[in-house]
Design a protein around this nucleic acid. Sequence first.
DNA 1: CCCTGATTCGC
DNA 2: GCGAATCAGG
Length: 231
Amino acid sequence: MAWTDERIDQLKSLWEKGLTASQIADDLGGVSRNAVIGKAHRLGLKSRPSPVKAADAKAPAKKAAPAKAAPAKPAPARKPTAAPAPPPAPAPRAAEPAAPRPAASGVQSQPLPEDSKFSTPKIVSVGPGGFLRQGPGDQQPPIPPAPPRRRVPAKPSAEIADKTGLLDLNERICRWPMGHPGEPDFHFCGVDVNPGYPYCVEHCGRAYQAQLPRGTRRPPPPLPFGGPRVR
DNA sequence: CCCTGATTCGC
DNA sequence: GCGAATCAGG
C-alpha cells in the first residue's frame, strides 16, 4: 500500500495523538507496525516514550552479531536534530487524553454459583452461531455475548463497531462465531484463547461438553461452522 | 509470552 | 523510500 498524502496525514495525526504504532497501523490498514514506525521516522516525527532507552554512554559490551547482515555499527551517537537537552516534559494531559490504552480485559469467567446449595446443575450450552442448547423444560434468558476484544479505542470513521471480523482471526483469539454468517453484525468472540484450543476458556466450555448423566436428553454434539453435515 | 519503539539494511 | 528483520526494554 502506498503512502498517499492522505495516509501520511493520518499517520502524523495519530502519531502525534499518542497512539501506538500498532494502533496506527491497524487504523490505516494495509501496513505493518514497522512500516508505520519507519515512515514516522522518515517523516521526522519525534520519537515518543520508547521502552528502549539510548544505550548508556558506558560499557556497551555485549552485542551478539547474528547471521544475517553485518552489524559492526558501534556508533550509536544519537543526535537527530536540535534539542540538545530536551527534558522529557510531555504536555500535561488536562483531562481527556483519549485513553490510548485499550484496557483490554478478557472476559472473566462468570463465577459459578457453586456456593448456592446443590441445586440441579443447569446444563445449558450455546452452539456455534449462537444457537441455544438447553435441557428439556429449562427456560433461561440467553447468555449475553462476550464483548469483542479489539484495539483502536476510538476510530472516528468507524460506522461499524469494531467487532472481531474474519480478518481479525489469528491463532490466539477465540474464533467462536457470534451471530450468524451473513448478518450485518456477524463477528467472532475475539477473546484470548484457552491455550491449545481455538476458543477462549468460556467457549471451550461450551464446545467441549462433559458427559451428562444418563437419562438426560443430550443436545447434538457441538460442531463448529464448516463441520461435516449431520444427518 | 506479550507489548513497545528504534535501527539496520536489502530491496 | 520502503519495511521486514532485528534489537532491546517493559
